[in-house]
Design a protein around this nucleic acid. Structure first.
Lengths: 168, 168
DNA sequence: ATAGTTGCAAATTCTTTGCAAGCCA
DNA sequence: TGGCTTGCAAAGAATTTGCAACTAT
């Protein structure tokens, strides 16, 4: 294995784009301009985001490619999850996405004040997970650990107006 | 301390009702029949539930007390969380509740097939949590660990019709 | 009497779907 | 060409809100 990409810790054999194309082909789906635009935008930075954020980014950045409609964004996000490129989590009753492909397994600290997510790694969590699952005869596909509280910055500032539900 | 209640492991000084009443009084709120009915129903069994489940239970069980409207159920669930009687979690983009008062800290296994939640206890998780938080200068208020996968029962049955989003 | 509550209806927010027109293989 | 896609408008699902009537204190 010679050509590998290191997006941030994990070596992978293909670019997200190549992998998405492979996924699409394997499902008899098509490689459209919209899907390309979305994939590109999604992997242009590592922050967590939701459908609305992404839609706004696509609209704002007068991408030469042009805009993408809301339904298409939702549909494509689902495909990116199925393709193993993104991970989805439910936060405050809405879907928040993060890079999965090319990034190592990690968990999160969630500030209730500013709503930001901070990542951290711990393989202890995975081993606890596997032990519990073994005892319970449960076939694990993954886990989600979110530590909630107040981040350092928010503790300093007395009462920051807390960015309501933005998380980018 | 003599009169204590053991709902399932943790000793507490008051019944959920007494505690809720205290909470309400401390906020200048009133002890109404609706709030009483809801509290009673919520603590009549230990399963996880969402607003819709609760509403259905209240309607079904021809409670002599009478029905409670949807908005009131939503409003009261929020109060029960504020009062420390319930814990809320976001699952599949909707709010799921579980007993908090009188029950020990625990985490969950979530079957993606039947959507059921199974509890397990592990204080290792809490210690990992505290260590991470200390390093990151983060003030912890709690955590949520959900292990996802397929439960034993679902692995046996080939393709159980998976109870869609029910979790009671 | 007074201020907090309730229920109804309507509004919101996030996400999904039906379908005709459009585009990729 | 044929079938997958897209965008629009509308539908859905979960939750919240305005407000007049009601009730606990």
């Amino acid at each position: 294995m010679e050509d590998t990409f290191s997006l941030s810790g994990v070596k992978v054999a293909m670019t997200p784009m190549a992998r998405f194309e492979e996924f699409l082909r394997s499902r008899g789906k098509r490689i459209t301009q919209q899907r390309r635009t979305i994939l590109e935008q999604v992997f242009s930075h590592h922050e967590h985001f939701d459908a609305e954020n992404l839609l706004a980014e696509l609209a704002h950045e007068g991408k030469a490619n042009g805009k993408v409609s809301r339904p298409t964004v939702y549909r494509t996000l689902g495909e990116l999850v199925d393709a193993g490129l993104l991970r989805k989590m439910s936060l405050n009753n809405r879907s928040v996405y993060e890079h999965d492909y090319g990034y190592p397994q990690h968990d999160h600290l969630h500030c209730e004040k500013c709503n930001q997510l901070f990542e951290f790694q711990s393989n202890e969590v995975s081993s606890i997970r596997d032990n519990v699952a073994r005892q319970r005869n449960f076939r694990v596909t993954g886990h989600r650990l979110i530590i909630t509280g107040i981040c350092g910055d928010c503790m300093k500032s007395k009462s920051p107006p807390s960015r309501r539900l933005e998380m980018v």
